Computed example of a mutant assay.
Amino acid sequence: MTDLEFEHQFAAGELSPALFTHEAHLRLAWIHVTQYGVETAVKNVTRQIKSYTQKLNAADKYNHTLTVAAIKAVYHFVLKAKSDNFQDFLKEFPRLKFNFKELMAYHYGFDIYTSPKAKKTFLEPDLLPFD
């Protein structure tokens, strides 16, 4: 599926839940960062993922800190990227796909994955800022 098809299916809440993997989260962030910039990407992606999880009756799985942190991490690597498509981007920066938790550990010294506060609001990194 093309990036445009993926973006539209996700925004409409029509993407199969089986397709919404960690890589798909990264792809959504990459599409929005490269098309609209990081600030708009944060607004769009957080709104869309919240809506998507609500539609699936899985709103408790949404984690605002993790979502924003992933977008900011993607943005960081987009600024360094030579690639012009998502698959090449992942090949250029495989840490995003294969070592994401380790990457987040450089920024957060506490568990953002299970924190009730992190799920509801963006918590700034306590170790290494994104900006």
Rank of each mutant, 00 (worst) to 15 (best):
D88W: 06
K120V: 03
D84L: 11
D84N: 13
K72H: 07
K120W: 01
N44G: 01
D88N: 14
M104S: 09
L96G: 06
E92K: 03
V45Y: 14
D88E: 15
T65G: 05
Y62G: 05
A73S: 08
V45Q: 09
Y75D: 15
N85I: 00
A24I: 04
Y113E: 09
Q9Y: 11
G13Y: 06
Y113D: 01
L123Y: 02
A69H: 02
F93A: 10
V38D: 02
L66V: 06
L15F: 03
T67H: 01
L15Q: 11
N63I: 02
H76D: 08
D3R: 04
A73W: 03
T40Q: 10
V68W: 01
R95G: 12
Y75M: 01
A70T: 06
T2V: 04
T40D: 06
P125C: 10
K117T: 13
F77R: 07
D60F: 08
L26T: 04
N85R: 08
K117P: 02
Y52D: 00
Y75F: 11
K72W: 04
F10G: 00
N57R: 14
Y113H: 15
R47F: 11
G37F: 02
A18R: 15
L103H: 10
I31E: 12
A29S: 14
E102L: 11
L127M: 06
Y108D: 07
M104T: 07
E5H: 12
L56W: 10
K80Y: 06
K119D: 00
E124H: 09
K55V: 02
F100Y: 15
S16Y: 02
L26C: 07
V33H: 04
T2E: 05
K43D: 11
V38N: 07
L15Y: 01
